[in-house]
């Protein structure tokens, strides 16, 4: 069967790929929650969760089951539809970003090339940014529909924080794009395979991007939308059961996807460091598997840094957050951009 220029086989391939990426995101997010608590325990010289299963590896399932069976409460005064839309939107937006990330080297088979990327579009990284910019609505709509002053304040805080930190993030990105000369994620990776990782040439850009990613994911030290001591619980205060679970889970999926984006942009994506893997003569599927594992190793390292920072640095005050974003990171990112452009022009002439 052929629909337009698209065969049924193509649709099947993409559906399987999308399903496995969503499954992977959920799986990693589940175990990031466990890793977070284990690492917190380790840093605070205690055991962390160790009751459910050996070493507590069933803890995420127990947590999820608990959330499912909790009573679901919808406040009487809230707007029912928007109250539902908030967590759904947060989850959808967290998952959509993973479509443009190349998860591994394409598999070459006798019938053709199977790309491990859902969509290798011309706009690549800009799609990620458009989804990130829409991500504000999950928090804003949820916080407003709760009809609670604390939730509303937290939602407005969260939205202004995310909008502010998008600017230095995109400015840091521009310096990377100067070098790679393409917005396509696959070409950004292949550029880095040929010329070395972007973090070597853009250390300042990576630092700015990482700080902004922390703020975009509402992670400590920028977790002001859920600052318990000021706002009770933050924008999801009125939520219970799995709707709350969606908000909490979306945060971990966001962490996973932003780690994958950072690994792709700055750490060479699925490139294996220090070796020229093209000379190994491996079977294509084996090579794809290894490259996928390498990307996952980089992502795991970045996730560890996220957690490490959470249990090390205390929360910023709101004015400090805004000062850092607008008065320090934006000028720094602009400086980085101009400097990179000047050096590139000088090298080319």
């Amino acid at each position: 069967m052929v629909i337009g220029a698209v065969t049924l086989w193509f649709i099947l391939e993409k559906v399987i790929l999308i399903a496995s990426i969503i499954g992977l995101s959920f799986f990693i997010a589940m175990y990031t929650t466990l890793a977070e608590r284990k690492i917190a325990g380790w840093m605070q010289d205690r055991h962390g969760p160790n009751r459910a299963g050996p070493f507590g590896i069933l803890q995420p399932l127990a947590d999820g089951g608990k959330l499912f069976f909790k009573e679901e409460i919808t406040p009487v005064t809230s707007n029912r539809f928007l109250f539902l839309l908030g967590p759904a939107l947060a989850m959808i937006v967290a998952l959509v970003t993973s479509t443009v990330i190349p998860w591994g080297a394409p598999v070459v088979t006798s019938t053709g090339i199977i790309s491990l990327q859902v969509a290798d579009v011309d706009m690549g990284i800009l799609i990620v940014f458009s989804v990130v910019s829409v991500g504000v609505y999950g928090i804003m709509i949820g916080g407003w529909a709760s009809n609670n002053k604390f939730s509303l304040l937290a939602a407005i805080r969260g939205a202004s924080q995310m909008v502010s930190y998008e600017l230095p993030m995109s400015l840091a990105l521009i310096a990377v794009l100067f070098m790679t000369g393409s917005l396509k994620m696959s070409e950004i990776v292949s550029y880095q395979m040929a010329n070395g990782w972007n973090i070597i040439y853009q250390p300042l850009g990576f630092l700015i991007f990482f700080i902004c990613a922390l703020a975009e994911c509402n992670r400590t030290p920028f977790d002001l939308p859920e600052a318990e001591n000021e706002l009770n619980f933050g924008y999801h205060q009125e939520y219970s059961s799995m709707k709350l679970g969606f908000y909490l889970f979306a945060e971990y999926i966001n962490m996973f996807v932003s780690s994958a984006v950072m690994a792709t942009l700055f750490l060479g994506g699925y490139d294996i460091p220090f070796v020229n893997e093209a000379n190994w003569g491996l079977a294509p599927w084996l090579y794809s598997l290894i490259s996928f594992s390498v990307l996952m190793a980089k992502v795991s390292f970045l996730l560890f840094v996220f957690i490490w920072i959470r249990w090390t640095i205390p929360r910023f005050r709101y004015d400090q957050l805004m000062n850092l974003g607008w008065r320090k990171l934006i000028p720094l990112a602009l400086f980085n951009m101009v400097l990179s452009a000047a050096i590139l022009l000088w090298l080319k002439s």
């Binding site: 706009m123 800009l126 799609i127 940014f129 458009s130 990130v132 910019s133 829409v134 504000v136 609505y137 804003m140 407003w144 407005i156 939205a159 202004s160 909008v163």
Partner: peptide, 17 residues
Amino acid sequence: VVNIIVYAGAIMVLFLF
């Protein structure tokens, strides 16, 4: 993409604010 980033993502957030 720019329509989404600028209008849906930035200007509408200010409206909601």
